[in-house]
Amino acid sequence: MKNLFLTLFLAVISITAFSQNDQSTTSGHIKIFSSTPAEDIEANNYKVISIIKPATGDVVFSVPMQSFEFEKALMQKHYNSKKFLDTKQFPKSKFKGTITNLSDIDFTKDGTYEAEVNGSLTIHGVSKDVSEKLALTVKNGNVTGVTEFDIVLADYGVIFKSGKPSTNISKTIKITANLNYTEKTN
């Protein structure tokens, strides 16, 4: 009898652990970094929305572009303006993709996994296919994600030919994302 209870108990535990609910956050951190001989520019955004769906491998990022904070107020104005990211016209950047090596990742088991993510990144109204690595760490049922990659501004139609921006802003921007996911309950 005792064994039966134990078996049932373990069965319930394993079913719960196996349900693999969606992992989501609405307060992820993304840093953008540009380095030129003239100056280094950095901006931080703590309002990044992201979802990972373990069942299908879907990965989504949504970034409110006006939430990037720069040290210099003038720089922030320039970044938002029509000449650069035009954040009034394009208030959000999005990534929609899927994990291609989903079978390598066990969201129920502690460990660090390298997810290969393929999908479409839309910035400044321009979409491009990208393939990046997302390091996922599972610890005590909590999932965290870290990724770092470069984007070329001209790929997304952000081009400055002359003047100060062309010397002070790098053509390639480094993007670093840090995400603390929590299990989505609905």
Binding site: T26, K47, I49, I51, K53, D58, V60, S62, P64, M65, Q66, S67, P91, K92, K96
Partner: peptide, 15 residues
């Protein structure tokens, strides 16, 4: 900073 959106395909809600 940004408005609300709902993506039905992914059941993604954005406040």
């Amino acid at each position: 900073r940004s408005g609300a959106e709902y993506d039905e395909d992914l059941d993604l809600t954005e406040n």
